[in-house]
Simulated scan of single mutants.
Amino acid sequence: MNFARVIRLDDTDDNVFERPAEAGEWAIPGSFEFSNWEEADLTGKARQAFAHGWLGLESFGRASVVAVAPITEAEEHALTERLAAYFVEAWGAPHIDAARPVAAEEIRHMAEMCSEQAQNALMVIERELTDAGVKERFRIIPPQGASLEAFAVHGD
């Protein structure tokens, strides 16, 4: 199985996001955080998080780039539990049992996006606010010759 993992090609994320995700964190789009946003919310670092940020699943910070990496079933299950707890703690879900199916769907969606991608492929996200809500576009950059380990850290 594959999933998305934060990589840091440079220190840009430290400068553009209020809370940058750390290299090696598993990540999802996390667009649910923007579901009630309006144009007035899109300023400064919040605008960058909206427009280009993946959500790290440890710090719940944002990252510009993720890479496709292998994940175990146990790790995937742990991510579901961590995200469900985040929904309770930060988003007011009534309890973990109510949050778990929503978290599982978010994790499943990311795993499906990565399932047919080559390991070490890079992924970037672009979002825009439309009259119909948040519109997402994903760009996949296939691995080029050298592995990412040659120039970037993206976890163990």
Results as ranks from 00 to 15, higher is better:
M1G: 05
N2H: 13
A4P: 01
R5K: 06
V6H: 09
V6A: 13
V6F: 04
R8E: 08
L9Y: 08
D13W: 00
N15W: 07
V16F: 06
E18I: 07
R19M: 09
P20I: 04
P20H: 04
E22F: 00
E22P: 01
A23K: 01
G24H: 07
E25H: 01
W26N: 00
A27F: 01
A27I: 00
I28D: 04
I28C: 05
P29Y: 02
S31P: 00
S31E: 14
E33N: 14
F34Q: 05
F34L: 04
F34T: 10
S35V: 14
S35I: 14
N36S: 15
N36M: 14
E38F: 03
T43L: 09
K45D: 06
R47Q: 14
R47A: 15
Q48H: 13
Q48V: 10
Q48R: 13
A49Y: 06
F50S: 10
A51P: 02
H52V: 05
H52T: 10
H52I: 03
G53S: 10
G56V: 02
L57A: 01
L57H: 01
E58R: 01
F60I: 00
R62H: 15
A63M: 10
S64I: 09
V68A: 05
P70L: 02
P70F: 02
I71S: 00
I71V: 13
I71E: 01
T72W: 02
E73V: 00
A74M: 03
E76M: 04
E76T: 03
A85V: 06
A85Y: 06
Y86N: 15
F87N: 02
A93Y: 15
A93H: 11
P94K: 15
I96H: 14
D97S: 13
A98L: 10
R100Q: 11
P101A: 05
V102Y: 07
A104K: 06
A104V: 02
A104E: 12
I107E: 09
R108L: 06
M110E: 13
M110Y: 00
A111G: 08
E112S: 12
C114N: 02
S115E: 13
E116G: 12
Q117I: 03
Q119N: 12
Q119F: 04
L122F: 06
M123G: 11
M123P: 08
I125G: 08
E126T: 11
R127E: 07
L129N: 03
A132N: 09
G133H: 01
G133I: 07
K135R: 15
E136R: 12
R137V: 12
R137A: 14
F138I: 14
F138W: 13
R139W: 03
I141S: 07
I141Y: 12
P143N: 03
G145V: 11
A146K: 12
S147H: 12
L148K: 07
A150H: 13
F151A: 02
V153S: 11
H154W: 15
G155D: 04
D156Y: 00
